[in-house]
């Protein structure tokens, strides 16, 4: 399956350029124009990303994340989630890289084919770095009042988590 993923991107690039060539589009000129527009937009993202990284780093490195995990464990156990999974649920909406670290840790500790290992990898595959994406997308458009955007996105992640728990339970 990894090999399919590796071919999707080159195939898409080749197809794009071949179609453009056949239709007489000045490919390189258009590429440069588009890339320039992308860079102008991208420059506005740098401060947003730096801000998010600082908040995540302080929260994790100070031990606040661990504390929150211990505090919420009983609530989770009631819903049927193993408490070990909580750091992943908290971190996942904020940072993909940090979530990968949490999952690698869980897989090494409990085994990739254990209940916790399966649940963690299915949850990773079925959720999104919601705070990161919402901040980035709304910030890049210049929107300051997100209304209920984040709540709805988090609700989507929660539905994904519950479905993942349900499906993993029927697998194991």
């Amino acid at each position: 399956m990894a090999s399919i993923g590796a071919w999707i991107l080159p195939a898409l690039v080749a197809l794009t350029i071949l179609v453009a060539w056949r239709r007489g589009v000045p490919m390189y000129d258009e590429f440069v124009d588009g890339a320039a527009e992308g860079l102008r937009l991208g420059l506005r993202l740098i401060p947003l990303i730096i801000g998010i990284y600082i908040a995540i780093g302080l929260f994790r490195e100070s031990g606040a994340l661990d504390w929150l995990g211990r505090a919420a464990a009983p609530v989770l156990a009631h819903a049927g989630f193993p408490p070990e999974i909580l750091p992943l649920m908290i971190i996942r909406p904020f940072s993909n890289a940090a979530a990968m670290g949490v999952i690698a840790e869980l897989l090494a500790e409990h085994g990739p084919d254990s209940f916790i290992g399966l649940l963690a990898s299915i949850m990773q595959g079925s959720s999104e770095t919601t705070f990161y994406v919402a901040t980035l997308y709304l910030g890049s458009a210049g929107v300051r009042r997100p209304l209920h955007t984040v709540h709805l996105c988090l609700l989507g992640d929660l539905i994904g988590y519950v479905a993942a728990l349900w499906i993993t339970s029927s697998l194991a």
């Binding site: 794009t16 179609v19 589009v25 890339a35 937009l41």
Partner: peptide, 18 residues
Amino acid sequence: LLAIIAVWFGLSRIAERS
């Protein structure tokens, strides 16, 4: 991310024009 955005905006511009 900036580099990736530049590449994809460039490619998507080609795809758009074609």
